[in-house]
Amino acid sequence: MSLTNSGSIDSAVAASLAEYDGNRNLGDLQEAGDLAARYDGELLTDPVEAHARGAQRLANWAAIFARFKRDLDPAFDPEEPPLIRIAPPGPEGQKYMPGVDPKFVKDPVLREKYIEAIAKNRELIRAYSFLSKLNDLHEVILEKAEDSVADAVESLGLEPEEIVAILQSADLRPSDQQALIAAANREAN
């Protein structure tokens, strides 16, 4: 899957996305969204320049939403999060309170299993937290992108049909594609 759009992405957006690709730090993805929206509302006198800027804006959003397509888990369920504390495993472990310090678990075998289980649960929570935050960020950035795409029509003069063509050729989640296409047609509606 190509996550870049052949040279038309803003270099600052591309840099933030490259960092995100390397470390999955959501701050970098958030920053890419901020950067992609920073010229919203600007007007350019030169139609050719305006068109180029609009096309770059679309490329920026396409690149950002390609990351969401790659990283969002369709099976993620915010209503079924992991437990933040667990009890030692097995029937014997249920005699203890969840989150009990392992040093209070008398049986050394059970204690070791508990320490392992805590480490696994910690990883589960981290992974779940990442997806939870990614989902929330997706909601925020989608709203930004919808405004930005609508503005590309309004301020930069891109034709909705052209935007639709760009978005349809981009590797996006269908729901994102539809939302952005709807934004492109906002003025017409």
Partner: peptide, 17 residues
Amino acid sequence: YTMPANGGAGISSGRRL
């Protein structure tokens, strides 16, 4: 869920644009 490389660091609230 698959764990990201950096442990799923959250979003810093104070990042600079």
